[in-house]
Design a binder for these strands. Structure first.
Lengths: 167, 167
DNA sequence: TAGAACGTTTAGAATGTTCTAAACAAAGTA
DNA sequence: TACTTTGTTTAGAACATTCTAAACGTTCTA
């Protein structure tokens, strides 16, 4: 069952996936958990993952749910066992894209939300400003418009990414 | 020159940009520096940014060069001053995209590089494997092919992002 | 009902990141 | 040459993140 060569390959793959996880703003362990399940032909239980990754039970418990939140794994029921088993969502690319969308897009939109506020604030005080300050306020408004335009572009662009991709 | 209302708006904008910086895998200060320059109609020197952001000179020095590395700012020469002045690259979206490309894409490609190695390693030991192990090796190969396919898709996709975007 | 089997929560340890302050290097000025 | 201005480097402080170990709660079993 356990071949050291095969295990080494699996472990190295898992390690690289961990780094990808970090790059996506998740933790290393989240990436590793996904890789482990991705390379398994059957659902795995918490204890097995603890043993394989040599991390604590608490860490697996927390991280596997983080992974679940992002659609990376789902809990499956295994006949005859009380344990929780998980299996990988095979649509890896979709997970990566989801994560990206939820990250950048959210921030950019948040920025645009703030900008509406700023624009209102500017309009409100505009009258009380000196000529010099009015110029500055006008300058800010232009810049803010650029950010909003960027947000529109990003949102439009993300929409064209297909919902389902078959590998 | 200094209007508290206008300054407050600039500072809040700067703060949000800092969070976007973190999301992009850069530091908060990098994001803040860009925002400061983005909202300025003239190049700024290191000392001014220190004063504005209330961070140390060393931090601005390090972070502004990180920002420069990603094409976020460029050094400009200001007549009659020995100081280094910087101005923002106005093409914000391009910077965000560059950063994204250099991040995810690089990792995914690195993964694919590793996979070539794994596939070779598998082929090499294939003969010495039991029937059971052979099945496992075959299973891994399939999975690896999927990752490579994903990499191809991501690369293709990133290529269609226009090089230059006008806001 | 007592105990075992599991997963979750949490306090604090380990680790990693980013900052500051100070020393430093380089280059201009007097 | 001595002094000033300016940016860079770096050791260690401050902070944030992620882990571990242990306590805990729940559910099942005997």
């Amino acid at each position: 069952m356990e071949n050291p060569e095969l295990d080494k390959i699996r472990d190295e793959f898992t390690e690289i996936a961990g780094q990808l996880g970090v790059r996506l703003g998740l933790s290393r362990t989240v990436g590793q958990l996904y890789a482990l399940l991705f390379l398994s032909d059957e659902p795995l239980c918490l204890d097995y993952m603890v043993e394989r990754l040599k991390v604590s039970k608490g860490s697996v418990s927390t991280n596997i749910r983080e992974l679940e939140k992002w659609g990376g794994v789902k809990k499956v029921w295994v006949k005859g066992s009380r344990k929780d088993f998980y299996e990988a969502n095979p649509d890896t690319l979709k997970i990566v894209i989801n994560r990206f969308k939820g990250g950048i897009q959210e921030r950019v939109n948040e920025m645009s939300g703030g900008i509406d506020k700023f624009e209102k604030a500017l309009s409100k005080i505009e009258n009380s400003l000196s000529v010099e300050e009015k110029k500055k306020a006008q300058f800010y408004k232009e810049k803010f418009r650029k950010v909003k335009k960027m947000q529109t572009l990003i949102n439009t662009f993300l929409k064209i990414i297909p919902k389902k991709i078959f590998l």
